[in-house]
Amino acid sequence: MNHDSYPDYYLADILRSTKVIALVGASPNPERPSYRVMGFLLRKGYRVIPVNPGQAGKEILGQPVVARLADILEPIDMIDVFRAADALPSVVDEALALDPLPKAIWGQLSVRNDAAAAKAEAAGVKVVMDRCPAIEYPRLVA
């Protein structure tokens, strides 16, 4: 996949087929982009599971926070990554240890690591990087 640009159908298919999202790097701070995007996704009807080891056991926007992807006890359709780009390889490794695998890993704005993307894609997981689902959703789905 060319990660410099994505066909609209590729992004729309991910957004339409996704029901459960693990939001890695979720913040309880209403000023943080992850908080605002999580609220947007919840309002659009997605089930969003916040992932943040420092907030595990608490709630963000009424959703219980888990420490790691492995702590989620249901299949994940998409992992939305609000971490620095250099953290993407470890998120991909965590994701590839899940059973079943997520359908997609979505790196937020400025989150891009081509080697991590290639590893996920080789395992059959779709990858989007340097995009925000809260920007793409109104453009492609709403």
Rank of each mutant, 00 (worst) to 15 (best):
M1E: 09
N2V: 10
H3G: 02
H3I: 02
D4A: 13
S5K: 15
S5R: 13
Y6G: 00
D8Y: 07
D8E: 13
Y9W: 15
Y9F: 13
Y10C: 02
L11Q: 02
L11H: 01
A12D: 07
I14K: 01
S17V: 06
V20E: 02
I21V: 15
I21F: 09
G25D: 08
A26E: 04
S27Q: 02
S27H: 03
N29C: 02
Y35V: 10
Y35M: 02
R36F: 04
V37H: 00
V37C: 04
G39H: 09
G39I: 00
F40R: 00
F40K: 00
L41V: 10
L42I: 15
R43A: 15
R43N: 15
R43F: 01
K44T: 06
G45S: 11
Y46H: 03
Y46T: 09
R47A: 15
V48R: 00
V48L: 05
I49A: 10
P50K: 02
P50S: 10
P53R: 01
Q55S: 15
G57V: 09
G57D: 10
G57I: 08
K58I: 00
I60M: 02
L61T: 12
L61D: 10
Q63K: 13
P64V: 04
V65A: 05
V66L: 08
L69E: 03
L69V: 09
A70L: 13
A70F: 07
D71M: 05
I72V: 15
E74N: 05
E74K: 02
P75K: 06
D77N: 03
I79Y: 08
I79T: 07
A85V: 00
D86P: 00
A87G: 03
A87D: 13
A87I: 04
L88C: 01
S90F: 09
V91I: 15
V91R: 08
V92L: 07
V92N: 11
A95M: 12
L96G: 04
A97L: 14
L98M: 13
D99M: 14
P100D: 08
A104H: 11
A104S: 12
I105C: 02
G107W: 07
G107D: 10
Q108G: 04
S110W: 14
V111T: 13
N113K: 09
A116M: 12
A118V: 07
A120D: 06
E121C: 03
A122L: 07
A122N: 10
A123N: 13
A123W: 12
A123I: 02
G124E: 12
V125T: 06
V125D: 07
K126Y: 09
V127F: 13
V128S: 05
M129W: 09
C132Q: 03
P133F: 11
P133L: 13
A134Q: 06
A134I: 13
I135R: 01
Y137R: 01
Y137F: 15
Y137K: 05
R139L: 15
A142L: 14
A142C: 05
